[in-house]
């Protein structure tokens, strides 16, 4: 016979511990009248209701990561010359930050909604950054975007709640770099292993791309990076942004 504590543990994975306890308590109160099957089915429905956003947000972020990675291979299609990235290596950092912003926007918009401060901050930074990339040849737009981006950063530093959202974004970006760079390094090592010749040799790139395992390696690399970033986002959001007032209350109406 399964213990209700297992159900409580499952619910608490997606909501606060005291909230989970009160939900399971409610269901336990009705269990003698409605039966064990009803209890477990109701618990499963509660878990589904509180948890569906997380896998959906992860899948959307993962799909976006795969799309962004393929976009990075052909930067010309995004309106900026790939040569620019070769001439100025720091541009790659900017590109990575740009993709991370979009990634966080997709993930937080689905998981926490548009009212969430992290989503709003990501949106506020994504708009000028995207405009900067698409209209980088127009100085007036570049200056306006930089000014707008600067204002968003200053505003997020000045406000206490937005500062927390900025910290979440910062940690997710750090986790993205921290998870993405080793993943890229490992993928590179693997490519050297399957085709142990310098990449600049003519036709070598095509030979690498033709290998059946390469797309899987890229997929695993993106998966690992996305997982690192979503885990960081969930932990930081839970720690800094969630209203856990209930879980800190001691149990009287006056405390509320």
């Amino acid at each position: 016979m399964l213990s209700p504590s297992i159900g409580e543990w499952m619910v608490s994975r997606f909501t606060g511990e005291k909230r989970a306890a009160s939900i399971v308590g409610d269901l336990l109160e009705l269990k003698p009248r409605k039966g064990s099957l009803w209890f477990w089915l109701s618990l499963a429905r509660v878990v589904m209701a509180v948890a569906w956003r997380r896998p959906l947000a992860f899948i959307a972020a993962f799909m976006f990561g795969a799309w962004a990675c393929s976009g990075l291979q052909s930067t010309e299609s995004m309106g900026i010359n790939a040569m620019l990235s070769h001439q100025f290596p720091w541009m790659n950092l900017f590109w990575t930050f740009f993709y991370m912003l979009w990634f966080v926007l997709v993930y937080t918009a689905i998981r926490y909604g548009l009212r969430d401060r992290v989503t709003q901050l990501a949106l506020a930074l994504t708009i000028p950054t995207s405009a900067l990339i698409f209209y980088w040849q127009k100085p007036a737009i570049v200056i306006a975007c930089l000014a707008l981006g600067g204002c968003v950063v200053v505003a997020s530093i000045l406000s206490h709640k937005r500062r927390r959202a900025a910290l979440v974004l910062f940690v997710v970006a750090a986790a993205g770099f921290g998870g993405g760079l080793p993943a890229m390094r490992l993928a590179d090592q693997y490519l050297n292993f399957i085709v142990p010749m310098p990449r600049r040799v003519e036709g070598m790139q095509g030979q690498i791309q033709a290998h059946p395992s390469v797309s899987w390696v890229y997929l695993v690399m993106i998966f690992a990076t996305v997982w690192t970033m979503t885990a960081a986002c969930s932990c930081m959001h839970k720690w800094l942004m969630r209203n856990d007032s209930l879980d800190s209350k001691t149990g009287s109406k006056s405390a509320s």
Binding site: P4, E8, K18, R19, A21, S22, I23, V24, G25, D26, L28, E29, P32, N243, L246, K249, T250, G251, S252, K253, A255, S256
Partner: peptide, 25 residues
Amino acid sequence: MEEKGIVRSWLGDATPQRGGRAKRY
């Protein structure tokens, strides 16, 4: 609704039939 500030909640008493779990009012 609690996140939107429409309702507020507090923890109440726990009963044996709830397995010692508090009610959330």
